[in-house]
């Protein structure tokens, strides 16, 4: 089986590609050929020989779908992969649009529809949660600096300023809010989400939906959070309330594919506030594998039409502890990606 995976960017803001590939190799240790699709020649996963067998540069979605399709077609002529697993929020819309044309080439994907993707977006989250009885922080969608002047009327500082795709900053006053707004706008466009700040511990759920059912779901408490808000260590937990919200969300969205739900457990009331619904597996997806639910492999089973039985349990008290590692390589590899847009191992 040949599978192409995006998101090999394992920096301090890691993408899910490397752990997704690790999960697939666990399931198919000898029969898998993996192709890494890169947006940057310095995505670390590309340099690790045991991650992808071959790596290719592809254009950013902002370059246009036609360019992306042409590039993938040319890579496919060489690598003949059967499946693409996109792992990044910002590319999903493009891959959903390209899915029929990719299918004509014999490439399968398993993605939500554009409508489903839109329903869970940050600017629609409050509407979605309100309609389904899920507690959510209040928010304001800011399209100009002027909108930030209403923050003090709506909420008390601090508040969270969030980019429409990625990034968040906790700000304590109007000056900080304006600076964060401009940064998010420049990087991710409009609107910028101003979200009520909820004090508490962070919990996440990693799950897989088949369009109706929850195939698997694993809940995790973040134990160590970086200054970018990324969980650098976490532990699996078993709170039925959390898993029930995840199942409710997947059913309401009729979600197809990997998904991550981010929560804060409010300190005073112990209520879970749903902060975000991310439309892909998280970078910590390998914890789910370690706890007994190989969700990326189950995703491939859904794509290939293999029988998939929903997971019913997982190990509680399993931890992940992430680390960084200086991998030494030769400039020839960097040159290969930069000049030829390709890097093969072995």
């Amino acid at each position: 089986m040949k599978i192409a995976v995006t998101g090999l960017n394992n920096t301090d803001n890691p993408a899910p590609g490397v752990p997704v590939i690790r999960a697939l190799r666990d399931r198919w240790p000898d029969s898998l050929h993996v192709v890494g699709l890169l947006y940057d020649a310095l995505e670390p996963g590309a340099y690790l020989a045991d991650v992808a067998d071959a790596n290719y540069m592809i254009p950013y979605p902002s370059a246009g779908l036609e360019q992306l399709f042409t590039r993938i077609s040319s890579i496919h002529e060489v690598e003949k992969f059967d499946i693409i697993i996109p792992t990044l929020d910002s590319e999903l819309n493009g891959f959903i649009k390209l899915a029929p044309r990719l299918a004509a080439l014999g490439i399968k994907l398993f993605l939500p529809t554009e409508d489903q993707l839109r329903l869970r977006s940050k600017d629609k989250l409050v509407d979605f949660c309100s309609a389904h009885g899920i507690i959510v922080p209040r928010n304001v969608l800011a399209t100009s600096v002027q909108d930030l002047y209403t923050i003090a009327q709506e909420f008390e500082y601090p508040v969270a300023i969030k980019g429409i795709f990625y990034d968040a900053a906790i700000v304590n006053n109007l000056d900080e809010a304006i600076a964060a707004f401009r940064r998010m706008q420049a990087k991710w466009g409009l609107p910028v989400v101003v979200q009520e700040f909820i004090a508490g511990d962070e919990y996440n759920v990693c799950a897989l939906g088949d369009g109706a059912r929850t195939i698997g779901a694993v809940a995790m408490k973040k134990l160590y959070v970086t200054d970018k808000g990324k969980g650098w260590s976490g532990i699996t937990i078993n709170d039925p309330a959390l898993l029930e919200i995840a199942q409710k969300t997947i059913a309401a969205l009729q979600w197809r594919g990997g998904i991550e739900l981010e929560f804060i457990r409010e300190r005073e009331t112990n209520s879970y506030y749903l902060l975000e619904i991310n439309p892909r597996f998280p970078a910590w997806v390998y914890l789910a594998v370690g706890a007994g639910q190989n969700l990326p492999a189950a995703l491939v089973d859904l794509i290939t039409g293999a029988a998939v039985t929903p997971f019913e349990k997982y190990s509680v008290g399993k931890m992940f502890v992430r680390y960084s590692w200086d991998h030494i390589t030769d400039i020839a590899q960097f040159e290969s990606l930069t000049v030829h847009g390709a890097l093969r191992h072995g």
Binding site: Y203, G234, V316
Partner: peptide, 9 residues
């Protein structure tokens, strides 16, 4: 001590 419902130790 580990409380599995909340992950607190």
């Amino acid at each position: 001590l580990f409380l599995p419902t909340t992950g607190e130790t």
